[in-house]
């Protein structure tokens, strides 16, 4: 095996993780408020296509990212409106939108297929990018990487250190109680669904304008949306653990490419599906931790128990359920 420099490996893990972090944190915000937006796989693709189309036509990255954010927000608005106000199953709306947005992206993006378009270049932070090792890994990255990294503490701070964040979590846990306290849960829910969707849109733009530049059928990010949804569960709806899950997945993906060079007999597609069984395994493990027997076994192992405690996460109690004000 040819030695890959550690810095390049780590830098590409970070770059691969960035759009995933933005998307998973967006979905975390949505789900924390009690709404499940299942449409991620389709919204990522459609917003990636729109970002590329707008970027190609106008040559402006800002407009490309903005259009993608609006696309993601509009899809989320549909999920929220159908789910919260029209009383339809959020999962059903989300799934239908997943398939439809994917096909819509291929249909509208057809003329933009395989074109050479704008691509974000790395943005070196003056001074910091010269630091040995950390410089090339952390401070010579395209803009979405910085956005993703800054978003992690920002979302955490909003959730757990602000009054509005408390309201957000309360709406996802107990909308009835919020209603009696004078908060309209439905307005909060649709607001955070739209914000989460806008972030998912930005993630799509980060793919087509930066990490996986260009547009085509297939674009190469098919299936990522489903992984993002699983990472939110894996991270127990906690922004920092969700981000760690995204890093873990990015690491697996980059590592898979390295492995592919070693086992050349196995087709590339087999490696691409490797994260999925791992995802199931991780979800099973996390669930196993809830069992009483496991708990008792852990009782005399304080260090391990603490670790398990950090891994556990319960879904927002009102997740996917529609609130009715009567």
């Amino acid at each position: 095996m040819n030695e890959l420099p550690l810095t390049i490996l780590l830098a590409s893990v970070l770059a691969t993780a960035a759009p995933l972090i933005i998307a998973t944190l967006g979905e975390t915000i949505t789900e924390k408020a009690g709404v499940i937006n299942l449409s991620l796989d389709g919204s990522l693709l459609l917003s990636a296509m729109i970002a590329f189309m707008v970027g190609f036509e106008t040559g402006s990255f800002t407009l490309g990212f903005a259009a993608a954010a609006v696309t993601g927000a509009a899809i989320a608005l549909l999920v929220g409106w159908f789910g919260i106000y029209l009383g339809q199953l959020q999962v059903a709306v989300g799934f239908a939108l997943t398939l439809m947005c994917k096909d819509l992206a291929y249909f509208l993006g057809n003329p933009y297929s395989r074109l050479q378009g704008p691509q974000l270049i790395s943005w070196k932070i003056p001074g910091l990018s010269e630091v040995p090792f950390f410089g090339p890994v952390l401070f010579q990255q395209p803009l979405p990487v910085y956005l993703g990294l800054l978003l992690i503490p920002a979302v955490w701070w909003y959730f757990y250190r602000t009054g509005r964040g408390l309201e957000l979590r309360a709406v996802g846990e107990n909308p009835e109680a919020c209603y009696t306290r004078g908060i309209d849960p439905r307005r909060k829910q649709i607001l955070y669904t739209i914000i989460g969707g806008a972030l998912v849109g930005l993630a799509g733009a980060a793919f087509s304008l930066g990490i996986k530049p260009g547009w085509g059928r297939p674009q190469g990010i098919e299936g990522i949306g489903w992984i993002a949804l699983a990472i939110v569960i894996f991270g127990g709806w906690h922004p920092i653990r969700v981000a760690l899950g995204a890093f873990l997945f990015a690491f697996l993906q980059v590592f898979g490419i390295v492995l592919q060079g070693i086992w050349t007999g196995i087709p590339a597609q087999v490696f691409q599906m490797a994260p999925f069984p791992l995802m199931i395994l991780a979800l099973v493990l996390i669930n196993l931790l809830q069992y009483k027997g496991v708990q008792r076994w852990l009782d005399d192992k304080p260090g391990l128990a603490l670790l398990v405690d950090k891994l556990r996460g319960a879904p927002p109690r009102a997740l996917g359920k529609t609130f009715h004000p009567d």
Partner: peptide, 8 residues
Amino acid sequence: SLSGVIQG
């Protein structure tokens, strides 16, 4: 993919 758009 127009068919998929119509179905959706």
